[in-house]
């Protein structure tokens, strides 16, 4: 894991990655496609219902089937299917795969496969690992469907369908908006510091730079929060947040919300049958 890249470079790379990812999602969500065209409230309710049905399923086939549904929705929404599959299944082995690996050997159960050096994979172990991997992979896929087909500000407003209060929605909106700003500020801080240093920073220097950046960022955040409050006040804000959405349910939206929820309900019932 030792790498030539220092902590600063990695942080910069991660910031770049986050910005890229959010731009990617934003671009995708504005392209034509089935899910993109649906009312965001339908998507939230429908995809959450499917997510829950993945979560409660005791049957691998049902989870597999639900992954199929996710793939089909990605295809009809004209999402880049390669990226959709890769994003889930290339990352998963590193995290969940590593977690699941020992379970293959450690879960007591009938032998499925004997390996050299007396290592034994049990049937139960294989099943439990499969459950974990497919469940996580399918859940992430449904979350991605939501994120990739809904612009974040639309998604936010649609949260009101889950009875999230206006004030909380405004907080989430402002947080997201200022994350973008602060990321830019950190980026500039690190880049300007790096440009003044020849070669690699020492670890101690890096630590000092990180602490100083975090401290400076806190100062800037506090200052922004005061100023933003003034800006809100100036435009008539008196502590009662309001949002305006322009959502309108069409017959198609109703049909899809019924369809997705019904599908989730069926999956939930069938999923209770073990297998």
């Amino acid at each position: 894991m030792a790498s030539a890249r220092g902590a600063i470079e990695r942080t910069l790379a991660e910031i770049g990655h986050v910005l890229e990812q959010s731009l990617f999602a934003e671009t995708l969500s504005r392209q034509p496609g089935l899910l993109q065209a649906l009312d965001p409230r339908v998507k939230i309710v429908g995809l959450l219902a499917l997510l829950v049905s993945v979560s409660v399923s005791r049957n691998l086939w049902v989870i597999g089937g639900l992954y199929g549904v996710a793939l089909a929705l990605a295809v009809v929404s004209r999402l880049p299917v390669g990226a959709f599959v890769r994003r889930v299944w290339l990352v998963l082995p590193f995290f969940t795969g590593m977690v699941a690996l020992p379970a293959l050997f450690m879960t007591p159960g009938p032998t499925l496969w004997s390996l050299p050096f007396d290592w034994v994979i049990t049937r139960t172990g294989a099943l439990t690992a499969l459950f974990l991997l497919t469940r996580v992979g399918t859940s992430v896929s449904f979350a991605l469907l939501l994120i990739w087909t809904t612009p974040w500000n639309t998604l936010l407003k649609a949260l009101s369908v889950l009875r999230v209060p206006d004030g909380f929605i405004l907080i989430l909106a402002m947080t997201y908006r200022y994350i973008a700003l602060l990321l830019g500020i950190v980026d500039d801080m690190f880049l300007s510091r790096k440009s003044r240093v020849v070669g690699k920073l020492s670890t101690a220097d890096e630590r000092r730079l990180l602490a100083a950046s975090a401290g400076a960022l806190l100062g800037r955040s506090l200052q922004l929060s005061t100023e933003v409050y003034l800006a809100m006040q100036s435009r008539g804000y008196r502590g009662r947040p309001r949002t305006l959405d322009t959502f309108a349910m069409t017959a198609r939206d109703w049909a899809w919300s019924f369809g997705l929820v019904a599908l989730a309900a069926v999956a939930m019932v069938v999923g209770q049958v073990g297998g």
């Binding site: 405004l170 402002m174 947080t175 602060l182 955040s221 929060s225 409050y229």
Partner: peptide, 10 residues
């Protein structure tokens, strides 16, 4: 609201 939003962003 702005206070918690900025602190969450931080």
């Amino acid at each position: 609201i702005p206070m918690i939003a900025l602190m969450a962003a931080f």
